[in-house]
Design a protein around this nucleic acid. Sequence first.
DNA 1: CGACTCGTTGAGTGATATCAAACCCGGTGG
DNA 2: CCACCGGGTTTGATATCACTCAACGAGTCG
Lengths: 247, 247
Amino acid sequence: VKNLAAAERLIAKLATRSDIDTNDRAAIRALPFTVRTVEAPAYLVREGEKSRAHCTIILSGFAMRQKLAMSGARQIVSFHLAGDFIDLQQLFLTVADHNVQALTRMIVADVSRAALQELTLTHPNIARAVWIDGLVDASIYREWVLNVGRRDARAKIAHVLCEFGVRMKAAGIAQDSDYDLPMTQEQLGDAVGLTAVHVNRTLKALVADGIVSIERRHVRVRNWDLLMAAGDFSALYLHLDQVPEAR
Amino acid sequence: VKNLAAAERLIAKLATRSDIDTNDRAAIRALPFTVRTVEAPAYLVREGEKSRAHCTIILSGFAMRQKLAMSGARQIVSFHLAGDFIDLQQLFLTVADHNVQALTRMIVADVSRAALQELTLTHPNIARAVWIDGLVDASIYREWVLNVGRRDARAKIAHVLCEFGVRMKAAGIAQDSDYDLPMTQEQLGDAVGLTAVHVNRTLKALVADGIVSIERRHVRVRNWDLLMAAGDFSALYLHLDQVPEAR
DNA sequence: CGACTCGTTGAGTGATATCAAACCCGGTGG
DNA sequence: CCACCGGGTTTGATATCACTCAACGAGTCG
């Protein structure tokens, strides 16, 4: 029964950016999903490990990708929410180059890697949709390189708040101007290359300016235009408007 | 005649990480490549533009991907050399989310986007190889987020020097410890999130420590181990050892 | 109620940016 | 052949944003 939910979640996600016909849907529903719960801060993927026999999709909860520097410093390279693939790169790469860790309690669905590969061979639409998913991930990484490399603290934080809002809304999890941040300020800092202390001061400044209000990790955007301006944010890089006809 | 060179270059690149059989090779050689020269600093792709009717592969020379912040600051998000696809993401995404610009004079080959898409449908090995190429790009972006976000100036610069050496060698362009850097110090700064001035001082420090010597953009690595240590570098994320059998 | 994690605030420090000027070198034109 | 020009590199002096260290507060869990 839960497997159905997994299939539907995946279909919904893929259908946002590609055409998925009834034949494709049937094929996805026929996949052997295995649903399980993961508690934070468990690792879903570890750097250096060989690809597992299955790929994983998030049904609920949040995850992060992170890498560690020699110095011990951590950099979070992306956040993921319901509908996202956790280890798409492992569909074809043999060894993991980073860690994936649960940010909150999660429910995830595993699919056999072989079955998924087979599906990409027999169902071009699905292959295309999954491929696009990976391309969008890459686009987000590029934006993060910019965010971390060339924006000041205020813009960095504001940018992440924007991205989270837009993605939450797109995934149907929350409003873009009213959502729960699933991470500590320290983790937020690790995502943008700042200290927890400085994240705190910067958040306070955004609140003081009346742009957002934050209460116990619940974010309420008071002025979306100002937040976007502060965060130098444009949703282009998320490729949400990807029209499923353009072929 | 030059088209042959383009096909061979592409075959060589894809074959490094995937099995490409004689049938696949024939299909690639049959592609209608168009070869052209591009002068620096011409744009090959512009942010916001609709996907063109062709995809582009580098035959010689160097390119960079970059994005601009509202403030005018530039962030280079990756460098590319012979054998690399310039606009793989545009194979399936409808609008460009960043710019691609020639770093030096380049010779590139264009292939019809439709033909390439067709090829991915009819030749699974090729689809797989091209897909993997994109996954490796994504892995490099992740490493760059870490580099830009959590390393100090010395490590950032050393890391880029390592990556360049390894990739040049893998592409058969130069030795990993003896190569020409195709960029100014300002561009190097834009790649790692530093000022040209600070890049200069940092390079000088690496030279003073006897780790590398640099003369007019020619890099000679004096002590590879020290350089790797200084740059916190591990080649894992480049996925060069991707064994073509692991399926 | 104690212990722990997370958030908050203050004071001092430091890495990197900014500003400014000189220098070097290849290219160009007289 | 020399003078000039311009982009890139180099160096010094100063400014600043974000880090570090340290302490305290607030909520949560056992």
